[in-house]
Structures are given as C-alpha cells and as structure tokens.
C-alpha cells in the first residue's frame, strides 16, 4: 500500500511542484557523508554509505529492522566511540568540517543532540533534567538557568504541562511527556542538529501526534534526522528520505519522490510492503 502523500509539503504555501523540488535541492547541506563503513567487532555493518542531510529539513531514514539505520546516525555524534569494539571509517562532514579523526567530542555532541527510542529521563527532577546539559557547558546565575530551562520546555511544547511539577521526579511524567522532556533537554544546549532514533515507537498514538507536530515546528530552527520503521510517519513528516537495506543506502531523495516514484526495485518492494 503506497502511503498517501500530501500534494505539497505540510505547512508550506501553495507552490508549483518544480519550485518545491528546486528549493529542496538547493538547500544547504549540514551533514555530508561519503563512503562510510562501520564494523561491530570485526563484522561489517555499514557499506559505503553516501548521504546528505540538508539544513532545516527533516530527513527520514527508513528500512527493515537491523539494516543499519541506527548504526548510521550514531556515527554523526560519534556515540559509538563509547564501545571499543565498534569502528567507523569514511568521510563525514559537519558544516564542511570532518568529524571523524581528532575532534572535540564535547562540542560535537553539544551541536548534535540525540533522542532515543525509549525516553531516558535522568533520576532527578524535570527541571534538573533539562538543566543538566546547561550546567555541564555553562556557568550562569540561577535566574538565567531558570529562563533557559523554561525556554527549552516551551520549545519542546511541554512548558504548560510541567510548569507546576518542575521539581517532581521526571519519572512521574507520562511516556510521551518524558520523551518531550528528553527533547527539551537536548534543545537546552542549543544544538544545530537533532538525531532521533525511532522517537515515537515506544509512545502512544496521541502523544506520537504531539511529537510529530513538534518536529514540524522544530525544523524551522534545527536540522532533524529521524530514524523510523513507520513508513507512514516518514511520509507525513519528512522532507527527504533515505532507504537503507542491509547496511547500504539503496536510495535517497525527496520524500514525495521516494514514495510515489522510487527508482530502485528494492525501495518499491519495501514501500509496497512486500517485505520488512
């Protein structure tokens, strides 16, 4: 079943199709990947990945489970470096500068935030959760801290729901709220890119809708990369889509094109539900 795709990108005014396409293609590139290979303890998991993540757009990464989607984006913030047996090679540029090799992890991870499939509230109050990143990187007065925390909550569309419960443990929030808390926490340090690894697969549908709305508004300020196994979601919220299969980027392009007129057979098979 080919998912329904809106006739024009959500939120944008009526434009001709070719105008949309050309505006997409000329968008700035935030992250550029060329020839990325990855190994888990000697076993290769990613093969020669090439990809471009455009600024202020949502890039979705789809594919069957275990095909390397999460592995791929975990290279962007080099979180894989925590595990000695994981190893990556290739060219990955952020704003034109390489992030492989000798790089300041602190700054890289401040610029590239990550949201995980399960909400991961820290064992502290909601306020302290969001303040955590701020206190790591900055020295500021209590007043400033409170202001910035509030801003982060507002940007994550969570302020109204938590403003009376700021000091309660974060674990008291609902699943959807916890996930938005994690988003607020990531936003607090003013990143440029947000990586989201299946952000709504552990959340109920109502909360999912809220988070998808949030993603819509976030892309005005941030660049987002979202891994999802939900094709409808990818079609709904993303501007670009990359289809992964067995560690390779099979196809990559404007979402509408991928879903209505894929150029590779494998992509078509996946989208029409023949496997995955």
């Amino acid at each position: 079943m080919i998912p329904e795709v809106k006739s024009h990108p959500p939120g944008a005014p009526e434009e001709t199709r070719s105008e949309v396409v050309s505006s997409y293609l000329s968008a700035e590139v935030r992250i550029s990947v060329r020839g990325l290979n990855f190994w888990y303890a000697g076993k290769q998991a990613l093969f020669d990945n090439n990809l471009e993540v455009k600024t202020n757009k949502v890039t979705a990464i789809i594919g069957p489970s275990g095909c390397g989607k999460s592995t791929h984006i975990r290279v962007y913030n080099r979180i894989y470096k925590l595990y000695r047996e994981q190893h990556a090679e290739g060219e990955v540029l952020l704003d034109g500068r390489s992030i492989m090799g000798e790089v300041d992890f602190i700054e890289l991870r401040r610029k590239i935030g990550m949201i995980f499939q399960q909400p991961t509230p820290f064992p502290m109050s909601a306020f302290e959760n969001v303040a955590y990143g701020l206190k790591l990187h900055y020295r500021m007065s209590k007043g400033e801290l409170a202001d910035r925390v509030e801003k982060a909550f507002r940007d994550a569309a969570l302020w109204d729901e938590v403003k009376d419960k700021l000091d309660a443990p974060a674990t008291a929030l609902s699943g959807g709220q916890q996930q938005r808390l994690c988003i607020a926490r990531a936003l607090a340090v003013e990143p440029e890119v947000l990586l989201m690894d299946e952000p709504t697969s552990a959340i109920d549908p109502l909360a999912t809708a809220k988070i998808e709305e949030l993603i819509e508004s976030l892309k005005r300020t941030y660049t987002l990369v979202i891994v999802t196994h939900n094709m409808q979601q990818a079609a709904r919220i993303s501007d670009f889509t990359a289809f992964f299969l067995e560690g390779r980027v099979i196809e990559y392009g404007i979402t509408r094109q991928i879903f209505t007129n894929p150029s590779r057979k494998e992509t078509e098979n996946y989208i029409t539900g023949r496997f995955g």
Partner: peptide, 22 residues
C-alpha cells in the same frame, strides 16, 4: 541502562560527568 548513559554522553558530557551526575 546503556541508553541512559548514552543520553548523557550525547549531551556532550565527559565520562566522569556522566558517572558523577547520572
């Protein structure tokens, strides 16, 4: 859980900072 530690690292914390606060 590793995801909790990864979340803290993902914010740009050093190993000691993750250990101490999280």
């Amino acid at each position: 859980p590793p995801v909790v530690k990864e979340s803290a690292h993902g914010l740009g914390a050093t190993t000691w900072e993750v250990t101490r606060k999280v």
